[in-house]
Nucleic acid binder design. Sequence first.
DNA 1: AAATTATATCGCAATATTACGATTAATATC
DNA 2: GATATTAATCGTAATATTGCGATATAATTT
Lengths: 108, 108
Amino acid sequence: MGITKTDIFNEKQNRLASILKALAHPARIAILEHIIKQNACICNDLVNELGLAQATISQHLKELKSIGIIKGNIEGASVCYCIDPIVWQEIKTELNVFFTMDFKSNCC
Amino acid sequence: MGITKTDIFNEKQNRLASILKALAHPARIAILEHIIKQNACICNDLVNELGLAQATISQHLKELKSIGIIKGNIEGASVCYCIDPIVWQEIKTELNVFFTMDFKSNCC
DNA sequence: AAATTATATCGCAATATTACGATTAATATC
DNA sequence: GATATTAATCGTAATATTGCGATATAATTT
């Protein structure tokens, strides 16, 4: 198949999985790190920084935008990307809530 | 292509992406939640709980095992799965470190 | 020992992802 | 206005993922 049966899971499970999926690629991790390191916004020196084609970077940026963790502002001919601090914090919290689930370690 | 160029990214980026990828499916989120909810270990009432075939559940369990977040102990004819609290904590910390990166919000 | 139960693995089909070149659209510069 | 520059999108090829039935393996029960 290749298609996920989202209908048999609840909203939270699907949402969390989507967020994780959007982040689950080394290029996208690298993009986020780079945007953060350059403090303010960068456009596509990302293409030069990472060794990927412009079309590929653009696609990764789109996936990151899809969960709202970054936003792009048009600045003349180029686009300036930056972290959305609100969404960043929301995702951080959401992940933290998940990993703070209580479990007893008296296992097998 | 479909193949990730892992060689152009660093160890940390690849590792973090692998962890996120292993978690990035609603069935695997559901499996983790279920293992935790049932406190101690469960085997494959997972097959009954989630609406997926035995082969599919087994594959998801394998992926979760691949990052060490769960471990399976053979108990007679069945296998008892549980969270590895050490790895769970490590992953929680690793994600938290990532999301604690400093960035200024004086953006575009 | 035959039958049952529990899991892992194989093989396959359908779909998704990754990556890139080519094209397009929009602004900037000459 | 012609020409760069920047970035999104299209189309395509290669590979990965998801899901399942069938099969294989191992322990349990009858």
